[in-house]
Write a protein that binds this DNA or RNA. Structure first.
Lengths: 199, 199, 199, 199
DNA sequence: AATGAATGAGCCTTCATTCAT
DNA sequence: AATGAATGAAGGCTCATTCAT
């Protein structure tokens, strides 16, 4: 399978059952609103059974966030890999961000909203990860501006606006919504293009 | 004081000390991550002293969210009140949303992120409130499109994208940042204009 | 009004409003199940307003129990005062006990059930009071047996059985029940006579 | 072991340690006067250790009351089972009631005095249970009256008086008292016989 | 005489976590 | 590998009581 298509493909998430259970619970009630017993119950495990897989509640959040961010980073890199023109790179990266927040809804949402519940060290790693993705889009926009393609000279602000929009998609998108996934993507990309402007 | 300028003015937030303390704590650690003792300590009160003012932890969150949403709604209505052309209405509403999320940062953030921690009834009220604001922007965009001013036919999607962006500002804006407040507003309005497009 | 009829007469209880409120609450929920706020609310007083009348919650219970026991003792003495024959003394004393537990239902019940919630000193006084009444009936029965009127040689056991029965009346008697008060009294006296036996 | 003697036999109560601890505490200080910490301490458990066995303080009371009432009901039925004549049935039932309140002193006392601390549903069940026992004695007395054995036509009132007396025994009986257990029983049965009268 | 505000101590319950079996 | 039993710490909340006004 070519790397150029990989980043668009979303198989049903295949998390270990503990992480899957934790993901659902964290998405619904937040990290602090979820007890280890809630997770164990959802995973159909006894509490000590759960500790067999993970050393602590924090450890579960870390595993989850790490998995999500790795997935996102890998896909973003793949999305950029095969594109050459700034416009192409921009379009693909935005599409990648949007798709990720559509098809990895809960995971993306939990990572974004529960990052603050991470212990300092892990939070730093998360932030670094986020920043890496943010840097990709900032750079693409700056390049596009330098290349006379994008109007906005505020690459960083525009980049932040665009990632914010993409993250927001995780809050409302449902697979069974009125629009097809591709149409949702198309519109979001169009909005993002509007943010950077044409020259 | 003219109603037309009111919505731009942000005096230092003047919450009762308990609500102020709760606001800071919720903003930093979330509703479930904050204990009633944390709030009492920050408010320099004993725990029962706190219960003298509020019947429960949930009650505090409700008071907070209600205050925020009333403030936001009132300002948005004021922002629209004196404007007539679609473009003007759009610009003012976006400016209003952005300013609110800049100068009522914590409150806006807490309302948005802890709505899920509200009891069902209060959550419904919050959602209704949110929807009222959302309807304002959707309508302005739809009007602008009908009037040949805005390019996008996707009023609802664009509206959602724009409020998402505005909410996002609450996550990073700091009064002591590099840009002046007015410059931040200017750029965000420009991005929002890009989302709906010119015709 | 002659002392000989006094002990049969029960005007509507005329307790100070705080004691009355406390009485109802203690009767319904017990001393430990009642909060000072419950009492204040029922008495339509603020909490400090209540402390204006009584130094403590315990103080209220003491006032209540003391009042009840004084009333009971006085009535029992009055009931015995005008009677001469053992049978007469027995009948009147039993009638007095029964009536008291009918018409001072809550008070008698609270005194009996919450004596254990009294501080040691007050508890001792209560017990002494109870014992005084108990001694009256025991003595009457013993006299009756010595005089060849009552069959039972177990004055103390019979006395205890009879007071127990009388106290029990407070648990079920209602002024609006099927039987007239006098009929209830008549039957209870008959049972008591059965306990001591005829000779 | 013959069913006919079973109901007279009282082995040392063999409650689970938590229930046993709760029983002693409730007997001494009442339900509301007892804290979960008191129970845990007496049971030599930590507080959460206690919650491993029971879901709540109320749950403990329910378990206790249910156990007591089942025991009482079973014994009363057994006591009646082998008797045929009204007098025999009466004697045995009274003996059974008295013995129960002697040898299950605390439990019987707690059930009777803390029924009001039960949640409404459980209270209803308790009352139903009590009523079942009450109905047994009422019926026996009524039968005896109909059969010309007992004088009293007031079966229900007499029944109530007798159960009241029996319950009262729980308040004062001590195994190390002056009288033998059998003598206590004998006297109480004699009193009860007096209440219903001979014909 | 009466009240709003306040508190130390304690309430029942649940937390994340561990350990013997 | 899996579970029942256990715990120190902390959760939200209420207690009886006091004091400034």
């Amino acid at each position: 399978m070519g790397a150029s298509t990989d980043w668009r493909e979303y198989l049903p998430e295949d998390l270990p059952k503990v992480l899957d259970a934790a993901l659902q619970e964290f998405a619904e009630n937040g990290y602090h609103g979820t007890s280890i017993r809630d997770i164990a119950a959802r995973a159909k495990l006894s509490v000590p059974g759960l500790y067999h897989y993970h050393a602590s509640k924090q450890d579960i959040l870390v595993a989850l966030v790490t998995t999500v961010m790795n997935d996102l980073t890998t896909r973003c890199e793949a999305a950029l890999a095969t594109a050459t023109t700034p416009q192409d790179r921009f379009d693909r990266l935005v599409e990648c961000l949007v798709r990720f927040h559509m098809f990895r809804r809960e995971a993306a949402f939990v990572a974004a909203s529960e990052a603050r519940s991470l212990d300092p060290d892990q939070r730093r790693e998360y932030v670094a990860s986020r920043n890496r993705v943010q840097a990709m889009i900032d750079e693409v926009i700056a390049d596009g501006h330098a290349g006379g393609v994008f109007a906005t000279p505020y690459a960083k602000d525009a980049g932040r606006a665009i990632t914010t929009m993409a993250i927001g998609v995780a809050s409302w998108y449902r697979a069974d919504g009125a629009l097809s996934a591709d149409e949702v993507v198309r519109r979001q990309v169009e909005f993002a293009r509007g943010v950077v402007g044409r020259r």
